[in-house]
Design a protein around this nucleic acid. Sequence first.
DNA 1: TTTAATGAGGCC
DNA 2: GCCTCATTAAAT
Length: 768
Amino acid sequence: MSQRSLFDAEPPAWEIDAQSMVLAATVVLPSGPPGEFDYAIPDTMADPRKPDVYVEPGRRVRAPLGRGNRPVVGYCVAVGPKPSSPSRPLKPLRGVLDPVSLVSPSMLRLTRWMADHYLTPWGQVLEGVVPSGVRGRAGTRDVTLLSVPTKVAARLTGLELPPKQADVLQALAASSKPLSLKQLAMRVGCTTAPINALRKRGLIESRVERLATDGLLAEDVAVERQPAKRLNPDQARTLDTILAAVDAGEHETILVHGVTGSGKTEVYLQAIERVVSFGRQAIVLVPEISLTPQTVGRFRERFDRIAVLHSHQSDVERHRQWRRIAAGDVEVVVGARSAVFAPTPHLGLVVIDEEHETTFKQDTAPRYHARDVALERTRAEGVPLVLASATPSLEAWRCSQPGAPERFRLASMPRRIGDLPMPAVRVVDLRVDGESRGAISRPLYQAMDQALRDDGQIILLLNRRGYSTHVQCPACGYALKCDHCDVAMTFHRQDNAVVCHWCDYRSAPPTVCPDCRSPRIRYGGMGTQKLEAEVNARFRGVSVTRMDADTMRRPGSHETALDAFRHGETRILLGTQMIAKGLDFPNVTLVGVISADSALNLPDFRAAERTFQLVTQVAGRTGRGERGGRVIVQTFDPDHPAILAAVRHDYERFASEELPARRALGYPPFGVMARIIARGASEPLLTAYLDQVAETLKRAVQEAGAKVRLVGPAPAPITRLRGEFRRHLQMHSPSGDAVRAALRAGWLPIKPPEGVRSVVDIDPTDML
DNA sequence: TTTAATGAGGCC
DNA sequence: GCCTCATTAAAT
């Protein structure tokens, strides 16, 4: 019902024209105006018997936009009757792009929810959710297939034809299946001229078909099937909890909190077996980094038909997997973040492994969190969601505790399988035991020496790549920064260059201070390259492998490095956080954390949580065999609660200390956060814009009487990035809807000036 | 008075 | 995001 103000006059009678209902498609655009637009569906596009040009929700269409009727492509999100009047008729659609729907009705609802939740135009969400290879039908091609009509075939001999044409017709009639133009020409040994002559005379008929260009891609490696493993009581109890939800056929979120090595994976593998036995599909989300052949192998051992989705796939491969999933040919989808959108026709269960990982948050639009999207999807489809972690996010943990607005069921697995003990953790106080030079303290050195003599293997974590992490002049204090970013340059010895880890700008290492010309420039701070050199120098003849973003650049290098470690060819594995997660090597008897504080001092309210997670996770890489294991954690802050809790493998202690602090400040999980990030080349322009946004936001919050607190505007912790200045504005509120309402009223309508870009990040995972 | 330039608003 | 139309300023 439309509302009319008392002061609005009724329109004069001659302006009211005959309205009629026409069949219309509602269209959203991947870029450009964010709204929904209705277009009349021409009769030719309303016939389901012509599937190639049929308009239905989830397909892309061509539509004329604006006065100039500029052709645009958009997603049809709904079809239904809409009013159209002679004075303002609906424009007709121009065409249909997709021969099948790319987005199911339930995925349309999910993306609609995302558009609302993350304040991102619906069309942009869809564009970000449907892989480009699927849109472009990568790996397929229109092929013209030629055949002889049966009528013609019957009187083949009676035809008078030029010799070449006769040969062609003979060959095609003899073929058991239709041939392409090229194939036929090849077979006869002629050009396409005689073939086309026959087509023109109607003696050859042709049809166009979409076919795979490259035949079958690398087939799934055959893997020997493994039976389900016997479960210990903790595992059995957890499985029962999940199966109760599966069998009830209702949505429920189950947080599986199991210590490292407690056998979480086996539990959800068995839960998936049940789901698959009902003819339904399961989606398993894992952090990108753990999508290794080993992980995937565990699924292949247990399921016949799995699909893998990750970001390093080609468009062709992704398209193929997507089609298999949509066709119902797949039992289990294993994938990174975006696999939460897998088009399973009959979803039965979603599992998010390592639920606390920040890689589940996408850092470009649509800036969604796969955990939150999965929660919404499973709720809408009425299926259970399993979140598994040894170190759950505090968001998930709080939902498992009494009094939370959202209730998750908690399943705890406090013991390792085989009743293996958790490794003993020793803290080395670097203020006391730190030596003047080097990364390895005496206690760590001794432990390494011992471990090597006992034939064990060692993992060393240092969460910084490069050689020296800062380049500084002792004379004037100048620290070398990136020319384009407000970030310290890291010296990489391998490339003999200083590198910006944010924009990859590189330059020659300075030999004198760029500021005061002092020749005493110092290279300080420890990165993985320098650690590797130190280990090599102090443990001569011991094989060492470094794993970080620099050594893992080529595809497969991850596998090569881990295989070498598994087979004992490498004794010491050192690297950044990519070695901290999920690895399961029973012969690792020592884990060393070179610097537990590296994440502790970041300007981020989650710094303590990150530190706890990282130390706990890497500590869990040892003690997985009969030989036990120990952990040495080096820190300058041995009394920090996060480190103390990690030392005791005590998640609940960490949570019970951190949660009150979060509550006091209104930080997540007790409040919702949003962050407006504006960037641009001109700092004054940026400041003026964000000040204006702050003003309108403040007014919107006041008018709504909402509980939304604004912090800033202020320079972002990284003030400059890729040559642009950055400022941000934070919003805190107990209510996400209040934040969104404020943003809709106070941010959306303010168009940034030329040269300023502004984005909103709902539930940001970092503050940089 | 004409022409160029900048900005706001609609796009169904 | 792009086009159109309005408003305003500069040029003839």
